[in-house]
Design a protein around this nucleic acid. Sequence first.
RNA 1: GGCGCUAUCGUCUAGCCUGGUCUAGGACAUCAGAUUCUCAAUCUGGUAACACGGGUUCGAAUCCCGUUAGCGCUACCA
Length: 473
Amino acid sequence: MIRVRFAPSPTGYLHLGNIRTALFNYLFAKRTQGKFILRMEDTDRERSRQEYMDAQEEDLLWMGLRWDEGPGVEGPYGPYQQSQRLDIYREYIQKLIDEGKAYHCYVTEDETSEMKRLAKLERRPPRFDNRGRTFDQKEIASRKAKGIKPTVRFKIDNPMLEMVDLIRGKVIFNLDDMVGDFVIQRADGAPTFHLAVCVDDALMKITHVIRGEDHLSNTPKHILLYQAMGFEPPQFGHLSLVHGPGGEPLSKRLESVSVREFRNRGYLPHGLANYIALLGWSPGDNREILKWQELQQLFEIDRVGRSASIFDPHKLDWVNGQHIRALSDNEFVRHAMAYLKTQGQLSEPNELVQQVLPVFKDNVERFDQLAERLQILDENIEYENKALIVSEEGRSIVSAAIEALPTLDWSEVSVYDAFVNAIKPKVKAKGKNLFMPLRMALTGKEHGPELKRIFPILGMTSVKNRLERALQK
RNA sequence: GGCGCUAUCGUCUAGCCUGGUCUAGGACAUCAGAUUCUCAAUCUGGUAACACGGGUUCGAAUCCCGUUAGCGCUACCA
C-alpha cells in the first residue's frame, strides 16, 4: 500500500508551489489507490500559527485534496501535528544518544556563526568542524557552569551516499564536502525538522516522500537518520520549483500566488489544479484540458519533468476559461452565485442575476470578471458614450424603439427580432449605426453580450424605463 | 567558496531512457484573417526554440566530457 504525505509548516498561506506539491502527492496516491496523509510541521513555535493551519487545511479542501489521515481525520499513526508528538521525538533522540550515534554538543550558536564567518573569510566551505564531539569532561563541566545548554548533534561517520530519486534518478553525495554533524535537537529541547520529519515519515509508514527540490540536498541527512534509527528509508522524489512571472522564487509572503488569492479571484478549483498539474507534468499526448477525474487517472510520477518552471497567469486564465465553458449552464450559475455571495457582491438570491449569468459563460475566464458585466442589470445607468443617444440619429432610433414596444408579444422567444423589425423601417440607420445606440440606451455600455440574449431577460418594464431614460438625456 | 540539481519557441511542454520517422510537434501569449451590432468566445493561418564548445557515431535535440547560466542546500527555519 502506497502512502504519501503533504507536510506543510503553518507559517503562512499555501502558495502555488506548496499546493502543487500537495496535488502531485494526492494524484500519485489516487492513481495507485494509496493513502494521502496530511501532517502539520509546527515545530517552529516562533513562526507557526493556528490561523495559518486552519487556512491551509481550508485551501487544501477547496482544491479537492481531501486527506485520508491527518488533522480532523484520525488514523492509526496520529497525532498528525508535530507539536503533539514531542515525546516521540525525545524518545528517538535519547535512543540515538544511548547508541552513540548522537551526542550533546556544548558549542554555542555564537561559536558556530563565528566559525562560519571565518570560513567564509578564508574561502573554505563553512562546515561545522565537529569540535563538540571531542570536548573532555572538564570542558563540558565548565561550559555547563556558564549556563550553556547543549544541542544534540547527529554524528556523520559514513559520508558517501548514493540514492535513486524518483524524478532525478541516481544522485551521489559526499557529505564531507557539505556538512558536519548536524543538530537534531535545539538547545531549547525542540527537535529540528530533520529529526522530526524522519521519525514521522517512518512511523507513519510513508512509502514515497514527494517534496520540493529544496529538500534534495537534505536527503542524505535523512537517509542517514533513517538508517541510524533502524528504519528502511522511503523512496524520494524531488519536484522542481515553480517561480513567479518574473522568474523570482515563490514565497509564502507573495500574496499574488497564494491559493487564497486564486480563490478570491474566482478560479475554479479544478481549473487551477489542471493548470498546476501542467507545470512540470504532461500526459504525453497533446491534451491539456483535463477534468479532475482524468487528472487522477492519468497522472504518472515518471512523467514529471526535472526542470523548474515559471508561473504564467495568462495560461492559467485560459485553462480556467476552458473549464468554465465546459460547465453546464446550471453548474455555471451555481458556481457563480456561490462566488458572488462569498465575495459579498450579491446579498440575496437574485432571480434576475440567475437568468443573465449563463449569458456570460462563454466570455469570462474568472468569476471576478462577473461583477463588471453584471452592471448592465443596474437600472441607474451611466452612459459610457452619451453621444450615441443624444445625437439626432440616436434620438430617432430610441424614439422608434419606444414606439415599437406596444406591438411586442413578450411571451414569444423571438420578441427581440420583432422589436428590431419594428424599428428598422422607421430609421435610416442600419448595422452598427443602428445597434450601437440601442446598446447604449439599453445597457449604457459600448461592449457587452448580445442584445438578443439580454433583451428578453430585461423584460418589458425595464426596457421601457431604459429607453425613456435615454431619451431624456 | 563547496556540494547538488537543471538547461527545447517569450512562457508551459512533447520528443531524450531504447540515436535516424525532427527541414523539432502541441498549447498560452503575440501578429494577420474569418465571423459578429460591439467586446468576448470560436475558427483559420503566420512569426518563434534544441544555451555554448568539444567528442562518440555513417548519423546526435537525443549518448559522453567541458564551459556558461539559473536555481537549491551549505541554520539551534521548514
